[in-house]
């Protein structure tokens, strides 16, 4: 069986589980909305102020929501030891990781679909004319959060204090990605919007490096 086929099977299972329980989606959407709404009270959201602080707040909300969402990704495979069942199946460890990554990408993207319009309204920012370019930045940035977060979710799932360990491991690693995503978003929300190829290339490079690393290390990661 190909890795893509096995990953698709794992992805379908993840989607079925999540859309049945909605544990992750509800939690993440509500949490990120609270962050964005609370921050909107801390300063006067004029267009100029929002352009200054908005992109950082938006990505902080995504990052916190991501670290909250990604923890259960492998931790819930501990219930009934289903990770053992996955590891016994004749599929590559990378297929298991990839299936989980794709599922997390879909879940976090769905949260962003809810969050970004709310952010635009609360912070007086017009997204007209930049939606397509913003989607490129969001997909690249979110992929980086998800790829790295899923890998660290496997590592932390085996550890004690795993709920605390994931953000502790994840947030420092994601600092370069956060800077690039915030800068790219800020340039898009400026009065003269521009999609900076340097930041886009940085985001894409980050995704490729961590996806390659997870492919190389997947057997060690998924092993007990």
């Amino acid at each position: 069986m190909t890795t893509a086929r096995a990953a698709a099977i794992v992805l379908a299972k993840e989607l079925r589980l999540e859309f049945r329980t909605r544990e992750l989606l509800n939690l993440t959407v509500v949490f990120s909305l609270i962050v964005v709404v609370l921050f909107s009270y801390t300063f006067e959201p004029t267009a100029a102020e929002s352009r200054r602080y908005g992109p950082g707040l938006l990505w902080i909300a995504f990052l916190f929501a991501g670290s909250l969402m990604l923890h259960p990704s492998f931790a819930r495979e501990r219930l009934n030891d289903t990770l053992d069942a996955l590891r016994m199946a004749p599929v590559s460890s990378f297929a298991i990781l990839l299936g989980k990554m794709l599922a997390n990408l879909i879940f976090l993207s769905l949260s962003e679909v809810v969050l970004v319009p709310v952010f635009a309204v609360l912070y007086n920012i017009s997204l007209a004319g930049v939606v397509g370019r913003l989607i490129i930045v969001l997909i690249l940035g979110t992929s980086g959060v998800v790829i790295t977060g899923t890998v660290f979710s496997v590592i932390s799932a085996h550890a004690r204090m795993r709920e605390l360990l994931l953000p502790l491991l994840l947030l420092p690693i994601l600092a370069p990605l956060l800077i690039a995503a915030v800068e790219a978003t800020a340039l898009l929300l400026a009065e003269q919007p521009v999609l900076d190829p340097t930041w886009v290339a940085f985001l894409a490079g980050f995704d490729i490096v961590f996806l390659t690393a997870s492919w190389l290390l997947c057997d060690f990661l998924v092993e007990e």
């Binding site: 589980l17 009934n80 030891d81 289903t82 053992d84």
Partner: peptide, 9 residues
Amino acid sequence: HSILLYDEL
């Protein structure tokens, strides 16, 4: 020891 099955499926 565990059932190796998903409770929500």
